[in-house]
């Protein structure tokens, strides 16, 4: 298929925004305070807005009358290329914030580079998105500090989340075949090169929050190849429910 490497490359970026946006949407109306509820919904809105920009571009690239919704709702689980981190559940607010923080730091570094992509559309989306993501990163870093250095209970809860989610961070820096091919063309980013800056930034914030950086040998991977956790099927059954139940209709 035409542009297949580029399309797959974009899935690798856009599916993270889609699935994390979907996860955050579950929380709307259930936040610990009205202010945090509104802020988290804002982040979800930003991510879903970015998703739409990417998928509209994919629709244009694939040139077979596909719409953004076909792409978002009608792929099979193995065709979604998001990392395992973003599909992890909203176990409690500590997990929500830690998942967000571990993703935001990566997302910011990625977009910083993507702004210089030779693909003009991707560069333009990245320029717009980075403004939003710089706010996300500030929001989640601030909350990591509040929870880490708040009460004993909050410290213990957020530390538990950091320990549990840490194993999903390494995957962020794995290069897929499509990453390599698009990077060669000056379109994609070599995420492996972001790794050092990532762990440095994450460690700074965790230290300031008086949290312990986990020492871990074994990491999880698979999302980038479409091999997801057991959570993913349930996310998709909500996400795809209407499109699967009432196929080929306009909403």
């Amino acid at each position: 298929m035409k542009n297949e490497n580029l399309i797959q490359y974009i899935y690798g970026i856009a599916d993270n925004a889609l699935i994390l946006g979907q996860r955050l949407s579950e929380l709307c109306g259930h936040g610990p305070s009205l202010e945090t509820d509104i802020a988290m919904t804002n982040i979800a809105l930003d991510l879903l807005g970015q998703t739409r920009s990417y998928f509209q571009y994919v629709a244009q690239l694939s040139g077979d009358n596909k719409t953004e919704d076909d792409i978002a709702f009608l792929r099979t689980e193995r065709q979604y290329k998001n990392v395992l981190l973003v599909e992890q559940p909203n176990t409690h607010f500590g997990y929500v914030i830690t998942r967000q923080f571990l993703f935001d730091v990566f997302h910011f570094l990625l977009l910083q580079e993507l702004q210089n992509s030779k693909d003009e559309m991707l560069a333009a989306i990245a320029k717009k998105a980075i403004k939003e993501v710089s706010y996300h990163q500030r929001f989640s870093s601030d909350w990591i500090k509040r929870l880490g250095d708040g009460t004993e209970e909050s410290h213990q809860k957020v530390q538990e989340a950091v320990n549990d989610l840490w194993k999903y961070t390494d995957e962020l820096f794995h290069m897929t075949g499509d990453d390599v091919k698009t990077e060669e063309l000056g379109i994609g980013i070599n995420v492996a090169l972001l790794k050092e800056r990532y762990y440095q930034k994450v460690s700074e914030v965790l230290e300031e929050a008086s949290l312990t950086i986990p020492e871990m040998k074994w990491f999880q991977k698979g999302g980038k190849q479409g091999i997801h956790s057991e959570h993913m099927g349930y996310i998709l059954s909500d996400l795809q429910y209407m499109q699967r139940t009432y196929p080929n209709m306009k909403w």
């Binding site: 109306g29 259930h30 936040g31 610990p32 305070s33 945090t36 409690h92 607010f93 500090k145 509040r146 929870l147 250095d149 708040g150 009460t151 209970e153 909050s154 809860k157």
Partner: peptide, 15 residues
Amino acid sequence: AWENGEWVRDAAMAY
């Protein structure tokens, strides 16, 4: 939502 959020609000205040 209120009860599950209590520890979060407490943390923000303490911080």
